[in-house]
Amino acid sequence: MMKDLIAKLKKHYKLTEPDYRRADLTFVTAQKDELRSLLIALRDIEGFTHLVLLTAVDWLEEGLFQLTYMLNNRAANRTLALRVMIPRANAVGDTIHDLWPTAETYQRELREMFGIDFPGSPRVNDEFILEGWTDMPPYRRDFDSLAYSLQTYRERPGRVTHDPREHMKKALYPDQKPEAAK
């Protein structure tokens, strides 16, 4: 069934080779400028009425974000995940809040956690779960969690740590102290 659907869609849209993960789950990558038209066709013609989720993957090395739109056809119990790639720099996606109202929430989340903008999406710039965040969006892979933690949270006084290698050197073969005679 999924193969038929993909074949049908391929007549009108540019799609990559689909990845049939399970009988009821298929991933396929679409063109960014064909996304909206594809989503409407899937929702209104093919019965994929439910937006399961909208999420992103940071392909840092390639300079891309992947947006994944997971749609479900309840009647047929089939899930289709559409992927579109967008440039990572000044990342902007097309809002689909008018197609699925829940997309508004997902897009707010993506705005906050990945820094992907969805112009026109209601309250997209409102804080989602981070309060008073000033740093880089934290789901970006170049966000340094440790550095953020170190600069944001105060160190408890009195903490001392030891590097295992240096600690062993000091105890077992210090430079200054002569080694045990043979």
């Binding site: 969690s145 440790l146 933690s149 170190l150 949270y153 160190e155 903490r159 001392v160 740590t161 030891h162 590097d163 295992p164 290698r165 600690h167 062993m168 105890a171 077992l172």
Partner: peptide, 19 residues
């Protein structure tokens, strides 16, 4: 990722164990 852990001396270092 939170710099929550310090390594502290508990026993004498030996082969394969920093103590």
């Amino acid at each position: 990722q939170n710099a929550a852990i310090d390594m502290v001396p508990v026993s004498d270092p030996k082969t394969g164990d920093s103590g």
